[in-house]
């Protein structure tokens, strides 16, 4: 069973600074890590490989320094790594990113399954995984919390819902995005770290993946960012003091006054 894992390198902070003029994320001076949700995707792929004797390929689209995220994935048990990198990809929104990744996947290999983390901690859109599947025209399930069964041309998964979970069967090849409940990612091993140091990373440019110029980067992005801002912190509400009876009375009269009851 051959699995492709799509990962993203993100800033190691939940409080990301935003450039007010361009509306994009400021990455300078911030340590980069593998998107935490993608670590579950890597772990699940490596587990499938260990059960079924396949290969795991990790793929990322990003600047040249995203190579370090790929090497870390290799240290955690991944076999091959692909860096999709080109200045022409810069400024891509989720549509252009999905297109680019789908083109890269078409270029590299045969696969049975593609796994992504449910979303990246910087953009938080959760759109690229399903977007890639749509571009490739394969079935996809988001928010998978368990793979119940996987065999050639068939898989059965549990999809996390707000109130329980769905059991879904689907043919392969397919794409899933995973939630953190699916596993506990392992730490790298010494042998993995040695391999990751020596590993050759396949570099793919816009030309190599035969990307249409109008579909990539900022120009290929249908989404135009008008403004990005941090929402103002929530204001404190109203506090009603007094005995329980007084509090109840005040509350009801206020609700009535606002015509809410």
């Amino acid at each position: 069973m051959n699995v492709i894992v799509c990962i993203k390198q993100v800033p190691n902070t939940t409080n990301v600074q935003i450039d007010s003029t361009t509306g994009t994320l400021k990455r300078e001076g911030v340590e980069s890590i593998i998107n935490p949700f993608d670590e579950y995707a890597i772990e699940e792929a490596v587990r499938i490989k260990e059960r079924t004797n396949g290969k795991v390929t990790v793929l990322t689209m990003g600047p040249p320094q995203a190579e370090s995220a790929l090497r870390e994935a290799i240290a955690r048990g991944v076999d091959n790594a692909v860096l999709v990198s080109d200045r022409a990809f810069a400024g891509a929104d989720t549509w252009a990113t999905s297109y680019t990744i789908a083109q890269a996947i078409r270029t590299i290999a045969e696969y049975d399954l593609i796994i992504c983390g449910k979303q990246a901690t910087d953009g938080d859109t959760a759109q690229v995984g399903p977007g890639v599947a749509e571009m490739l025209d394969i079935p996809h399930v988001a928010y998978v919390k368990k793979i119940e069964e996987i065999k050639p041309n068939y898989m059965k998964v549990e999809r996390m819902m707000e109130d329980g979970y769905d059991i879904i069967e689907m043919p392969l090849p397919a794409l899933i995005t995973v939630v953190k409940e699916i596993n506990t990612p392992r730490l790298p091993s010494l042998r993995g770290m040695m391999n990751s140091k020596k590993a050759q990373i396949l570099q793919l440019t816009a030309e190599k993946i035969k990307a249409e110029k109008d579909n990539i980067g900022l120009t290929g992005s249908p989404t135009q960012v008008m403004k990005v801002f941090s929402p103002p912190p929530r204001q404190g509400g109203m506090k009603i003091d007094g005995s329980p009876e007084e509090v109840a009375e005040t509350l009801v009269s206020k609700l009535k006054g606002s015509q809410l009851v």
């Binding site: 730490l187 790298p188 091993s189 010494l190 770290m193 040695m194 140091k197």
Partner: peptide, 11 residues
């Protein structure tokens, strides 16, 4: 190699 071992043990 030695730095790697330290790094891993630290993790």
């Amino acid at each position: 190699e030695q730095k790697m071992m330290i790094d891993l043990a630290r993790k």
